[in-house]
Design a protein around this nucleic acid. Structure first.
Length: 873
DNA sequence: ATGGTGCATGTTTAC
DNA sequence: TAAACATGCACCATG
């Protein structure tokens, strides 16, 4: 690590030193600067085609081992290996930069070549390239724009260089190195790095082809290979090249901007660009992340399609359009589209769908500038219906409107859900808007992001879905305006060529990553998964080992407080095969055998038989299980029942403390909330579980101590009101279900008596009792289908219970239990199960006893209107 | 209970 | 720092 840092620092110093020397030397030449387009007038001198400034290449070469080439470019004066390249590339071959791979003649990389595209005369002093390494490990150069280099004086060369390296090759520096670098320089702000990225990216975006070429054609001095590859990619690259270079596009119908890309604020910043653009000067749009995208996409491989952000077409206020909304359509796509539609397609803008855009609300937020530029003007908030044709020719009518927002407007397209769904778009995909000329008909298309959701989320969370989001991989050529692969109309585009790979480093910048953004996109499935995982985790929480809790007594109630966070423990199950005797069982991680443990045993996350300190006879995996498989099945089932019974026991404890009916309900609610019905193994036998910590806002913790007389029937505290409200709701719901069920039952009776009531709830209960296996599965079903469960339980309720007043003073847990048992007895007798008698002492066989207890538990829960569903509430 | 609507608000980004 | 924008949320309508 240290060596790496040192190596980089040395490299930086050398690099900067060289840069400073170059600067000084070039400055000495004053007007003798060179351009990327120059011609030879006399030996040793080159003159810029544009500004006619002259550069005596020989002097430079002699000092810096550079030389200008007759056919354009700069080569190493010693090896001349990099002497030939595209005329718009200036290549610097710098000795002494072995670290970047130069001077390695055998290297397959572009080592040591510093193509500096579009260098203009006034850029040369700062126009030094830094190196980056593309995905394939090839070396590429990244031009340093004047804006960055201008800071050189402020930050110092080293800082700039570090920044450039950082920006151009985030992976080059290890994070720690990065930190060190930042630290030592003390002035590297992420912001600046970001700008550097943008700057560099812009350069790339404008040198798309050259950069690719230079990176791909490792024998860069081999013009033939360049040409060969150029032929191979000519269809792809040339149009983009022409676009990128700002040359008048003769190969595309897309030429809607008289001023090219240099417009708006760009004009002010690069005034010469416009002029030069008239002379086939490269377009130098404002540095933007877009450029980074282009560059990143350009890095993706030799066969990458070049998706260049196009400056917007003419429109109102088009000058204010952010580059992120610039349409990125390849000329190839454009040509194909125009051909397919037999018209001239004018890309207007595009937008990456946000979660809310793609959501069910059906509102697509339009970029304000885009909406005002390309959509009809609207003065009323209600807006106007806007017809937009999709790529299948279907015409959609959206409501184009706006909302007042902070003295501004927020434009939306309403009613886009059907369209979005028909295109099967999701957050992260890009929707595009184009115009068909003549006629001005609006057309919408899309580009699918083949990345998964999390990528989109990443990008979204990190604010990268603004054009730099690289979720748009595998961009279909047809897809720009909606021709997805399945609907490919042909066009001879090799899909493979369009595969684009995104590097993580391009996706994620140091900014906006992490919890800073609260807008993490979480899809429902993910949220559900997370929730379940969280719940599972909750069940596995254990008090921190070897940490004694601080017992705080508040109004006669003891609360355990832990200074340490809880720890995860191994899942165990609790059961009570005989009355009053609780057991804990754990499964060995090695042999999967179940071992019995003391109830109070807490296991680490990983536990094996060898750690079974409580049973020396079963402390090795080779020893058989204590239980038969059948017992094991029962055990698992009983475990679930045990959990439910704990509810009863806890409620009994509350009842012993003279609880009111509300207390019982509240207690049930609390327990129900905390003890899920999932049948999952429970934590140790303590109700003061460690999850309740200071600051916890769960219902247990916010509830005032419910000691004696704390909650009277007339109490209107939040807890009581909540419980009352919930109870009332449950009763109403229950009553409704009851009536529905009665109607259903009577209807069934009238219809058919032949078919046994297999699907009826009673049969289910009977099966529970007669068939333990079924009982287990059914029990599981109950867990998974709370509604069904509730339905079953309802049959056990006392008919009069429906009218039971909420505040009935006599409503105690014991009453409820009694009622439940009464109902159960009735139910059993009614169903011919009189042989199975509820035995409080547990003298029954294990199966029936547990089943009955379970039924009793369920009956109790039902009797208080407490269903799985309500517990989840 | 669910979904639509309009607006408010917090976050991000560009200047 | 202000504008833009993504999303939250209250309110209302509907089933």
């Amino acid at each position: 690590m240290l060596r790496e840092i040192t190596r980089h620092l040395i490299t930086l110093v050398i690099f900067v030193t060289f840069q400073q020397l170059l600067w000084l030397t070039l400055s000495a030449y004053e007007d003798s600067l060179f351009c990327d387009t120059f011609h030879s007038e006399e030996p040793g001198w080159r003159e810029c085609n544009i500004c006619t400034k002259r550069l005596h290449c020989g002097c430079i070469a002699s000092k810096f081992l550079l030389e200008l080439l007759d056919y354009g470019g700069v080569g190493c004066s010693s090896c001349a290996r990099s002497s030939r390249l595209h005329s718009r590339l200036i290549k610097l071959h710098v000795h002494g930069f072995e670290d970047f791979g130069c001077l390695d003649d055998s290297s397959e990389s572009i080592s040591g070549l510093l193509p500096v595209p579009h260098i203009q005369c006034d850029e040369i002093p700062n126009g030094f390239g830094s190196l980056t390494r593309n995905n394939a490990g090839d070396m590429e150069s990244i031009p340093v724009e004047s804006t960055v280099a201008a800071n050189d004086n402020d930050e110092g060369g080293l800082a700039q260089l570090c920044r450039l390296i950082e920006a151009s090759e985030p992976s080059l520096l290890h994070p720690s190195e990065r930190a060190n670098t930042n630290g030592c320089l003390g002035q590297f702000r992420q912001e600046e790095i970001r700008h550097a990225i943008g700057d560099i990216g812009t350069g790339f975006s404008n040198m798309t082809l050259p950069s690719i070429v230079s990176s791909k054609f490792t024998k860069a001095d081999n013009m033939s290979s360049l040409l060969d590859m150029g032929d191979m990619h000519s269809s792809l690259s040339e149009p983009s090249l022409s676009m990128a270079l700002g040359a008048p596009s003769g190969t595309t119908n897309f030429a809607p901007f008289p001023g090219g890309a240099v417009e708006g604020r760009e004009q002010g910043k690069t005034p010469s660009s416009f002029q030069q653009g008239q002379r086939s000067r490269p377009i130098l749009p404002k540095p933007s992340k877009l450029g980074l995208l282009a560059s990143s996409e350009n890095n993706k491989g030799s066969a990458s399609e070049l998706r260049i952000a196009r400056p917007p077409a003419e429109g109102r206020g088009k000058n204010q359009l952010l580059p992120r909304y610039w349409p990125r359509i390849t000329d190839q796509e454009l040509q194909q589209l125009s051909g397919d539609l037999n018209s001239n397609i004018v890309p207007l803008f595009e937008k990456i769908l946000s979660a809310s855009d793609a959501g069910r609300i059906g509102r697509l937020v339009l970029p304000k500038a885009c909406a005002e530029a390309y959509f009809p003007p609207i003065s009323q908030s209600e807006g106007i219906p806007l017809k937009i044709q999709d790529i299948k020719g279907r015409e959609w009518t959206f409501q184009f409107r706006f909302w007042p927002n902070n003295n501004s407007r927020m434009y939306v397209l309403e009613g886009v859900t059907p369209c979005i769904q028909s295109m099967q778009l999701k957050a992260g995909d890009t929707i595009t808007f184009s115009r068909i000329d003549p006629g001005g008909k609006l057309v919408m298309g899309f580009r699918k992001s083949t990345n998964n959701n999390e990528d989109a989320q990443d990008a979204q969370a990190s604010g990268l879905l603004d054009g730099t989001a690289s979720g748009e991989t595998s961009l279909s050529a047809d897809g720009y305006i909606g021709w997805n692969n399945s609907e490919n109309h042909g066009g001879g585009i090799n899909g493979d060529l369009l595969q684009q790979i995104t590097t993580p480093t391009e996706k994620k910048r140091t900014r906006n990553i992490g919890p800073k953004s609260k807008r993490l996109l979480m899809h429902s499935e993910d949220a559900m998964e997370l929730r379940l995982t969280w719940e599972e985790a909750q069940d596995l929480l254990r008090p921190p080992p070897s940490v004694k809790p601080t017992v705080v007594t508040i109004e006669d109630h003891e609360f355990e407080e832990y200074d340490e966070p809880p720890v995860f423990g191994k899942r165990t199950i609790f059961t009570s095969r005989s009355p009053g005797r609780q057991e804990q069982w754990a499964q060995c991680d090695d042999c999967s055998k179940w071992r019995k443990l003391p109830v109070d045993a807490l296991l680490p996350p990983k536990w094996t038989c060898s750690e079974n300190a409580w049973d020396s006879s079963r402390c090795v995996c080779s020893v058989s299980e204590e239980m038969t498989p059948k017992d094991l099945d029962n055990l698992l089932r009983v475990s679930k029942d045990f959990k439910k019974r704990r509810i009863l026991e806890s409620q009994k404890r509350f009842q012993d403390c003279e609880p009111s009916g509300l207390d019982a309900l509240a207690s049930a609610a609390v327990l129900g909330d905390n003890i899920d019905d999932s049948g999952e193994p429970s934590v140790g036998a303590t109700t003061k579980h460690p999850r309740h910590r200071p600051g916890c806002t769960c219902i247990v913790c916010i509830q005032p101590p419910s000691g004696k007389g704390k909650h009277k029937p007339t109490c209107t505290c939040n807890v009581c009101m909540t419980v009352k409200r919930r109870f009332k709701t449950l009763m109403l719901r229950k009553k409704k279900r009851q009536s529905e069920r009665e109607a259903e039952t009577s209807q069934k009776d009238n219809m058919d008596h032949k078919e046994p009531e297999v699907n009826g709830t009673m049969s289910h209960e009977a099966l529970h009792i007669n068939n333990p296996e079924t009982a287990v599965s059914q029990s599981k079903m109950q867990t998974e289908k709370p509604e069904t469960s509730a339905g079953q339980i309802d049959l056990n309720c006392h008919p009069n219970r429906e009218d039971m007043p909420l505040d009935m003073p006599g409503l105690t847990t014991m009453n409820l239990v009694d009622m439940g048992n009464t109902h159960l007895d009735s139910y059993i007798k009614e169903n011919g199960l009189s042989s199975l008698v509820w035995d409080q002492q547990g003298d029954q066989t294990q199966h029936s006893g547990e089943s009955l207890r379970r039924l009793s538990d369920e009956a109790f829960l039902a009797s208080i209107g407490w269903t799985h569903e309500s517990r989840r509430d």
